[in-house]
Design a protein around this nucleic acid. Sequence first.
DNA 1: TTGTATGCGTTATCAT
DNA 2: ATGATAACGCATACAA
Lengths: 344, 344
Amino acid sequence: MNKGPVTLMDVAKHAGVSLATASRVINGSERRVSGPLRDQVMVAARHLHYVRNANAQALARSRSSIVGIIVHDLGGPYFSQILRGIESVTENQGRSMLICNSHRDPIREVEYVTLMQAHRASALIMAGSGLHDVDYNEQMLESLDGFTSSGGRAVVIGRHLLPCDAIVPDNVAGGRAIAQHLLDLGHRRIGVIGGPPILTSSHDRLDGVREAFAKAGVVLEPHHLIDGDFTRDSGKVAAIALLDRDPTITAILALNDEMAIGALVVLRERGLSVPRQMSLAGFDDIPASTDVTPTLTTVHVPLRDLGVRAISLALRDATPDPLVEAIPVELRVRESTGRPRSGG
Amino acid sequence: MNKGPVTLMDVAKHAGVSLATASRVINGSERRVSGPLRDQVMVAARHLHYVRNANAQALARSRSSIVGIIVHDLGGPYFSQILRGIESVTENQGRSMLICNSHRDPIREVEYVTLMQAHRASALIMAGSGLHDVDYNEQMLESLDGFTSSGGRAVVIGRHLLPCDAIVPDNVAGGRAIAQHLLDLGHRRIGVIGGPPILTSSHDRLDGVREAFAKAGVVLEPHHLIDGDFTRDSGKVAAIALLDRDPTITAILALNDEMAIGALVVLRERGLSVPRQMSLAGFDDIPASTDVTPTLTTVHVPLRDLGVRAISLALRDATPDPLVEAIPVELRVRESTGRPRSGG
DNA sequence: TTGTATGCGTTATCAT
DNA sequence: ATGATAACGCATACAA
């Protein structure tokens, strides 16, 4: 019967009121409409199966109900947990998540921030640590500035070299704690699988490790350190290389759990018993870390909570100065670490 | 200097052309603009840091570049893989993903479809099987109809009781295959951990199992079947119950991998060696299934591919009749299954 | 090829 | 409390 979709105008006519009134009862925050008219409009809307046009709404308000989320690795266990946290609060707020996967590519990351500005997202969360890339930080600064000055709120998770609100887990302390744990057990020749050098979190974790080593008078020799890319497969590759370079290491410390699990697979294949012949430790405490055998000693990072805090902060009003919230992490000793076989 | 954000009008003025021309060079699909003017506009846009307003665009076009995605369990390994697949094609298309998590709740599911209509999403993918709920299917039919008749394309992953394009993995065949595998090994007393009864996939998988059992003349006794909810924890609970009810079972078949892993934890705690004392099988072949010890025998479902196919289909034009694409699944025999200790 | 003018569906600012 | 009406920023049919 009608031509296009049902508009608010249609509802208004059907209810015998003005467009303005209809708008007020359907989407108006303040309800300054008399009871009778309210009902008429509601009935009409229901009757006509009215569905609001979110784009028109966003255009008129110059702000959409969307929150933008940029992750480094969509689908990975780390970001999955963070997403869960974010979703747990957006779902009760009538906000929806526009999710982008940067694949840890600086260029895409910058583009996606601009995309969020294009959508007039009310909030933007960049989950995943900052990148060590001069061009990147310069462009990101600009792009982020565009976003915020267009009215959006931005929050990053992890340490970024950017002047915006941040939720940052204490990676340095975590690195220190897990390394200290291995040292306390008596390990001295420890193979370390680092993260992508471009990430600030890789640096921070490694810094923590180095601190603990230094304090114990142990040096992390170059051939005992191999960088992975935070994937399971890179953990396998690195573990193999580590073992080849120095078969006498008594422990492997991977700077995230996924790589640790990759290393575990290698150890299993080589018949090296964990932790009897080789201790193994990870970082993050992803769900899988308690599913593997032996269960993985790691650093617990409250991933879900990171997401909750980030979105909560982003939904609050901005403060004059960037607000950074430090999140403590915690050593979780489980089955994969033990004393070295013969004195280290 | 300026008041609000930079609009296309500003760009046009700065370039000394009309709004229409600016629109054509910036966002016009057909490029019927002379070289010189083109450049002027591009330069002006770049100079002014022009960022398009996606909402205005969507309003004018009455179609946004967003694709809507509704999953049952955001963050879970099953849907994470599917999301990866979807993202791999949207990222090259300039489309972004608006992701909603229904938590398997029929009401939310329906609401989210309407939400996608509100956003004028160009495509909608409902990942996760259909629900056995009369009210649900009725309302969903209506809601989905609203979406499509507003111009959107909808595709579901899994068997739904809805007349729309679908990508459906062959769960029945999978159930048959994994059950047959256990039967072939000689198992006769098999504990089965089913999925949420509300899901069509739970039914289909179980139907397959029943078929294989029947063919082998084995009956699946009621006390050998416990339904979980596809989570790891429910797998633990179910495994415990199964073991309590009948300690003589020789195998446990979980209808998804997460529950199987939960069961594995229980078996480990009880000191039951897998597969020597108890065989264990799962379904889906999530990444973790090769990380656990022993590696999990399961049914491989091409999760990532499911996502790719769904979004590809959704981005193609609709056909007169609903198009359903059947996806074969495949038994993956690994370490967790073996012959029962003493003849079953 | 380029410009003009209208419409997209809401919100919000005015009057009344 | 309610109703006109002007933005909101862009695409596009139509005119030139």
